[in-house]
């Protein structure tokens, strides 16, 4: 752990904290602007989508195993299974493919 890491940590934690804390302390009214509310509604989903794809395909040791994991996750999530079930289901899918790849 070096000096640069602490700079990263402070900047990161500071940005996250201020975004959460400032409205809690200073804001007591609801946001009226439909545009801003819509923007803030879309942000989590577009962030998650662009964080997940295409990075997820390189999150395991092969693109093939990751692709199978994604398919398992999409199917399980489509049926509204819990976060943990989907996450572990995807992992099991990856594990199955990678064990097969080792055996074959």
């Amino acid at each position: 752990m070096d000096f640069k890491f602490f700079i990263y940590l402070i900047v990161m934690a500071g940005a996250t904290y201020l975004i959460r804390m400032l409205p809690l302390v200073f804001f007591h009214k609801k946001i009226k602007s439909r545009f801003i509310r819509s923007f803030l509604y879309y942000i989590p989903y577009t962030v998650l989508a662009s964080m997940t794809f295409p990075a997820v395909f390189y999150a395991t040791s092969s693109v093939l195993s990751a692709a199978v994991g994604v398919c398992v996750a999409v199917v399980l999530a489509y049926f509204r299974l819990s976060l943990i079930t989907v996450a572990l289901g995807a992992s099991v899918g990856v594990l199955a493919v990678e064990l097969l790849q080792i055996l074959i």
Partner: peptide, 19 residues
């Protein structure tokens, strides 16, 4: 092989939130 499999877990959670 286990670490590699768990590498997808967080993305799996993201997909579970999105779907």
């Amino acid at each position: 092989v286990l670490v590699s499999s768990l590498g997808i877990a967080i993305y799996g959670m993201f997909i579970a939130i999105l779907m």
